[in-house]
């Protein structure tokens, strides 16, 4: 559905995309995962034909995004990172506006947006600017869907959205995928990355890895330990002195310690902490999550250049 070859894009001296190649299959739920400034939004804008690359090619449903922008926009729905509906138009007026722009009506394509739009329809006479975060997001998704697109491009749709609304949002994405829509989504939430069919890890304009989230987690090459103690922060400080330590990070109620494969046993780490007068330490090997994969990836491709 989407084919990207050797895309490059720079803004003055900053390289936003550095020779990116990628394919997204029809009907796939594809995640773009990377830190701020990695190039995710730039890639999405190029796919939407809103931005021209310096070199390279990208096609969407067979249309060249640099030459066939009308065709591209007709088959794609886009939710930019920032809320970008008309705040002083009502819910209903925003829907009508986007339908009209694409030469259709809300009525004609109602079945497409019904499941999502019904949740905000009771408030259809309210100005979009006065909706709560979760509702704005549902309206934005409804507006992106009103012309029955084949592809949805969603730039951090759940940033600033609470945990319950996020779960609802991903349920909606699952339903849209079931209807055959191809979805490209970026997110800073690692639990959401694991809900994608495949994900790409991006850093500094380069794609480092593309795979299913399950395979990426299974390929975690180092030893990973889950550690609990009464006070995590001081325990983490002490673990920084463990000679072969790769990284130690807080993961909710426990710490995740990464050490090179086969170097330490649980007992050795436990003894190390006991020597540093830590008590009530629980340590056990644990399975990597996408968050662990991402953090190791960031540690290995670390840069201090803003």
């Amino acid at each position: 559905m989407i084919k990207i070859e050797n895309l490059k894009k720079s803004y003055s001296t900053t390289v936003a995309l550095d020779d990116v190649s990628l394919e997204v299959k029809r009907g796939e739920l594809f995640g773009l995962i990377g830190p701020d400034g990695a190039g995710k939004s730039t890639l999405m804008r190029i796919l939407m034909s809103l931005l021209l690359p310096d070199s390279g090619t990208a096609t969407l449903n067979g249309f060249d995004v640099t030459k066939q922008h009308k065709e591209v926009r007709h088959v794609t729905g886009y939710m930019p990172g920032r809320f970008s509906l008309y705040p002083d138009l009502t819910v209903e007026e925003n829907m009508d506006f986007f339908a009209t722009v694409f030469g259709t009506t809300v009525k004609a394509n109602y079945d497409m947006v019904k499941d999502i739009y019904q949740q905000i329809e009771p408030f259809k006479t309210r100005c979009a600017g006065k909706l709560s975060g979760g509702m704005k997001q549902k309206l934005a998704l409804s507006c992106a869907l009103i012309h029955k697109p084949l592809v949805l491009i969603l730039d951090e749709p759940t940033t600033g959205v609470d945990a319950v609304s996020r779960k609802e949002f991903w349920e909606m994405l699952k339903n849209l995928k079931a209807q055959g829509i191809t979805i490209v989504v970026s997110t800073p939430y690692m639990d959401e990355a694991s809900l994608c069919d495949r994900i790409a890890l991006i850093q500094q304009g380069k794609i480092f890895s593309v795979d299913t989230p399950q395979q990426m987690a299974a390929d975690f090459a180092e030893d990973l330990w889950a550690i609990r103690s009464p006070k995590l922060y001081p325990t983490a400080q002490k673990l920084h002195d463990l000679p072969e330590m790769i990284s130690v990070n807080s993961f909710g109620q426990e710490l995740h310690l990464v050490t090179p494969k086969g170097v330490y046993s649980a007992k050795e780490i436990s003894d190390f902490l006991t020597d540093k007068s830590e008590t009530e330490i629980q340590i056990q090997p644990t399975e990597a999550t996408i968050e662990d994969v991402f953090m190791l990836f960031m540690t290995q491709h670390h840069t201090t250049q803003p």
């Binding site: 990377g34 830190p35 701020d36 940033t159 800073p188 968050e291 991402f294 960031m298 540690t299």
Partner: peptide, 10 residues
């Protein structure tokens, strides 16, 4: 930390 990546959040 809204919208911030996991490393920077920590």
């Amino acid at each position: 930390t809204g919208g911030v990546d996991p490393v920077t959040r920590r």
